[in-house]
Nucleic acid binder design. Structure first.
Lengths: 242, 242
DNA sequence: CAGTGGTCTAGACCACGAA
DNA sequence: TCGTGGTCTAGACCACTGT
């Protein structure tokens, strides 16, 4: 009992999807060219491209201009644990680029520093195999950042591991989460479709003196990441706050 | 100094976007028909529709088949506060539909009950003006749900307010968050584009006896919602866990 | 019924990648 | 250079909404 399909592009997408998930098209393998696929399914090229766009938004297909459409290596699903906790699973290798810059509008607000204050940016890109997995941009007031590039490698999660050795006492972590489509530059670095949703986490950590010591912008593609927060209530504090 | 535009559809989308955000096209107002817009911008209809699709994915335009394209009433941005805390801002009116059902696979796992166990579903749809804002499906073991439909109205946040009067002690709230595109049924109830990302939150609350007392599936469209989690660290517990 | 959006066609031409 | 995907055209025909 098959479900009636609304449109040809969905039917084609369903067919290709099942071929990929069933392994008849292997991860990393190139699909037939769009012209051939269009001929095979007896549709026009725009219709076929429309079908591929659906799979692209699911992260199942990666298009490379001038080369072809590739079945995506299904990246393992990683969980980001909120509240400054370390991940339970094996971390991914991360490449880090360090840059010095000055606080601009949004960043200055997050870290509550004056515009123009010196910051250090750590641009962290985690990888799984040869594909980029996710992206983190971590901003730290310059005086808290060690000059040496940290060797810490885990997936975008390194709360204070990038900070100067005498790590300030971490008092509060505030994480704001929203879903959006990637910017074109994010889509390019992560090699994802501009239609694949991402989980964007803005994390601000504060030390015991109330000083913001870190602002992190995490970019987690929806097909390979989720975030989990666990809140424990002691019986005493269990009352709604005003 | 204008930035060079990659394609016509982006140029058209940019033009229409600025008209909407500048208020020259007012919220709720109908745009010209696609045929007229295509003529106005001197492009073909597919190209014009492509431009509208971009705005649709941003939540700026709502298409209604047979009627036209409408500038979206910009819905106020709401923040979901994690960890079972109540929202600070004014809650939105919520309509609630109650249904009895039996636990199936995923739901049974979340609530750790046997398949077939009786549950009560609260289908909560919050509104802002006449537009639906966000959606929550809350599942509670039947014996914990009061027969009376709760009058509690706030935006998808009513942790235990839907439960039987002698509220069990809430011990733990676990919230798992991911970004995805809406299912077609979610897109229909929320009247959003299938290309507008949503924040999907799966919340499981546990009482002091370790019993799961609530599973909630929250569907928060990305253009109007974000989630915030605040974690406080006492100086004692500030050590990474294994 | 007329007007609207939804889907699709059969091409054209451009831009990119590898040889 | 050739094959690939990226963009666009100028229609056709169908489905939905309101009169």
């Amino acid at each position: 009992m098959t479900v009636a399909v609304a449109s040809r592009r969905h039917a084609i997408a369903d067919d290709l999807r099942s071929q990929i998930t069933a392994g008849r098209i292997k991860p990393g393998e190139r699909l037939l060219s769009e012209a051939r696929l269009a001929a095979h399914y007896a549709v026009s090229t725009p219709t076929l491209r429309n079908a591929l766009a659906l799979l692209q938004a699911e992260g199942l297909v990666e298009k490379i201009h001038g080369k072809g459409n590739y079945a995506r290596q299904p990246l393992s699903r990683k969980t980001y644990f909120g509240g400054g906790h370390t991940p339970a699973s094996t971390p991914l290798p991360v490449s880090i680029r360090t840059k010095r810059l000055q606080a601009r509008g949004h960043l200055a607000t997050l870290l509550r520093v004056a515009a123009g204050s010196p910051l250090t940016e750590f641009l962290c890109l985690s990888h799984e195999g040869r594909s980029p997995h996710s992206l983190a941009r971590i901003y730290v007031p310059r005086d808290l950042a060690t000059a040496a590039t940290p060797s810490a490698s885990c997936w975008p999660q390194e709360v204070a591991s990038l900070l100067a050795e005498p790590v300030p006492q971490l008092a509060k972590v505030e994480e704001s989460i929203h879903a959006r489509l990637p910017t074109s530059s994010e889509a390019a670095t992560l090699r994802i479709s501009p239609t694949l949703a991402i989980l964007a986490i803005t994390r601000v950590a504060t030390d015991t003196n109330g000083r913001e010591i870190e602002a992190a912008l995490l970019t987690l593609p929806a097909d390979r990441a989720e975030a989990t927060f666990t809140t424990k209530h002691t019986t005493a504090e269990r009352r709604p706050e005003g």
